[in-house]
Amino acid sequence: MFRYVVRRSLGACVTFLASTAIVFLLTVALPGDPARAIAGQRRVSEATRAALSARYGLDEPVWRQYLAFVGRLLRGDLGESYAARRPVASILAEALPTTFTLVGLTIVIEVFLALTIGAAVARRSGRHVDHLVLALCVAALSMPLFLVGSLLQRWVGVGLGWLPVAGTDAGLGSYVLPACTLALPGAAIAIRMVRIESIRQLSAAHVQTARSKGLRERTVVRRHVVRNAAVPFISFVGLEVGALAGGAIVVERVFNLPGVGQAIAEAIRQRDNALIIGFTLAIIAVYLLVDMLVDIAAVVANPRIELSA
């Protein structure tokens, strides 16, 4: 187990280093002469150009530049935002709590919907409810998020006046509508997943035993089926974090939440490349970390998994 954890985290580090190398090569090293870009439109003498290159270390070989780049990353230095004229890391630190709350609440909603609806549908597979849920799932996956968000905002927020529609002033309450919006597509997939896994479990031997000893069907499902069906779910959460990164950008804009997504959208509008690079790397790091933790959790939850990765 310990060896698995070590190997898995080393693997994650290698993957992260590889992605930083690609990001570095595609952005910092590739496009033309950065010293000229810094000088801008002005015609500069060869001496000025050399001075600029020396100042930013551009005259060093590419691999040394890359090492310096990684060194800065490890010290938490993600560069400086051109637009805000502030360190990218501090902008990130301000935005993270909002997005973490949003994503956390979203995953809670998804898991809840999946375990309740998925298990309920599995017991009625092939019946009308099953088809209805399938149809709803396909609809949830194909509706554009900003439409769902805008409609919820309009009907539940403004129309019924139950929940706040924008900003984060109302504490956790202001996250409810955004999280419900963001949860829909993921929940659709999770429900299908739990349903299939539960159907497989329903015919398993230990479930037959539970039934034959006279347990009520509901107890059987809750205690023996859903629990086993929930194991693949742990790895779902890992992948879901990555998928939610995209949705969060949209939902944060609809509901005006000051999170990571809003910051990225703003950076795209202002062509603030330093911020995009910093945020890209930070999100990749978080995603890889979550993915790793989730893999380890899956092994802990189900010792039958082979430790071959």
Partner: peptide, 19 residues
Amino acid sequence: DVVLGVPLAIGMIFLLTLV
């Protein structure tokens, strides 16, 4: 593995804006 380590939306934003 490296490509899958990048969330789709983040990868697209990166490619479309910077590359």
